[in-house]
Amino acid sequence: MKRIRIEALMFLVFLFLIFWGVDSYMGVSNFFKTLMLTAHDLLINTVFFIMAIAVLTGGFSALLFEFGVADLIDILLKPLIKPLYNLPGVAAMGILSTYFSDNPAIIALAKDKRFMKNFDRWQQPLLCNLGTSFGMGLIVSTFMIAQGTRMSVNLFPAVLIGNIGALVGSIASVRIFSVYTKNKLGTFSNDEFIPEKYYTETRPGSFMERFLEALLDGGKSGVEIGLGIIPGVLIISTFVMMITFGPKDQNVGYQGLAYEGIPLLPYIGEKIFVVLRWLFGFSNPELIAFPLTSLGSTGAALALVPKFIDMKIVTPNDIAVFTAMGMTWSGYLSTHIAMMDELGYRYLTGKAIFSHTIGGIVAGITAHLIYMFF
């Protein structure tokens, strides 16, 4: 009871300090007006746009799985999986399932004994970092390419480079994490090894029936993803926006408009801008908001991009880095604990997060270097 009272008191003091700071800077009325208008604009102009992309990509992904294209890609990728990740070739299915949907898709595979018995015990926790590295990959890539219209630039090459960066980042993440899993779990072989024959099941019926059912079921999964990102976008993105941008008109001051706020992140970004520019080639301190937001929600991070483009502070190099880090860090802080728990290795969560943090940084640096080279 005493602990509850102390926590309540500390929380009230924390709230008072926030409101005191906000009131002294932009005014409480402007703050709440900006809060509501920003959340509303994000919902109408960003969330529904991302949802539309998720529905289309969901339908397309379902067709790839239904008609065996994903299995064909899986077969082509298998020779690369062992040398790149030191994992069984069937792990390619984990990459495909998360790339075409989201991080938790790897858990559905982990529940399948046919799939998991291909892995030694020390390899099983690595599936968390492997899957997270490609979460929402198709949605992120499609969204970024679509922003080329706003920038009047073909962003496909930059997005392709971003995907390569995410691949390199995933290798770094999995390889670093494997050092810890080998030390903790040993390197004993799986006595119940099953030959790698894992394929997705198809629906019964004619070609047209399967086509329509797969298309509509995939679209429904896209709706679920679109609905699932609403809390992250409206809460996290609104908060990030309000500590990224200042008043719309410096001469007039705060008017309670959408996307106004206290420019805290740019202040921090300016202090480390030399590092950001050297590592990622960022063209503006405000861009630090994207990778930081990706840690909690990639959907929320995507919501920042149109605003950056409207402000003319983003370049194709930044898009490449955003794509790489957005995929690799696709909300992993909010999903890693649950995913590691589902895999049965909660005690290794700290090592998984540390490894994946390094992987995301490697992904961003790789995308920048490749973009500069080409």
Rank of each mutant, 00 (worst) to 15 (best):
83 P>R: 04
36 M>I: 11
102 D>G: 07
279 L>T: 10
102 D>H: 12
260 E>T: 06
132 T>Q: 03
352 A>T: 02
178 S>N: 04
159 V>I: 08
110 A>D: 02
251 N>Y: 10
288 I>A: 05
197 K>F: 07
115 F>V: 04
209 E>M: 01
10 M>P: 08
276 L>G: 08
307 K>W: 12
25 Y>I: 01
311 M>R: 15
363 A>F: 08
323 T>D: 09
205 G>Q: 03
261 G>F: 12
82 K>S: 00
207 F>A: 07
210 R>L: 02
1 M>V: 14
4 I>F: 15
331 G>M: 03
86 N>M: 02
251 N>A: 13
315 T>S: 15
252 V>R: 04
260 E>Q: 04
299 G>I: 09
330 S>F: 07
237 S>A: 15
16 F>D: 01
90 V>S: 01
184 K>S: 12
151 M>S: 11
284 N>K: 13
56 L>G: 00
259 Y>A: 09
22 V>C: 06
370 I>D: 06
144 M>Y: 14
113 K>N: 10
205 G>M: 00
126 L>M: 12
135 G>T: 02
134 F>T: 04
86 N>F: 00
152 S>G: 12
371 Y>H: 13
80 L>Y: 15
313 I>W: 07
53 I>C: 07
175 R>C: 00
154 N>T: 04
231 P>I: 06
14 F>W: 14
245 F>M: 12
54 A>K: 02
185 L>N: 00
60 F>V: 10
323 T>H: 08
341 D>L: 09
174 V>F: 00
79 P>L: 05
47 V>H: 03
119 F>R: 11
69 V>Y: 02
291 P>G: 07
125 P>R: 08
217 D>Y: 01
222 G>F: 00
309 I>D: 05
191 D>M: 10
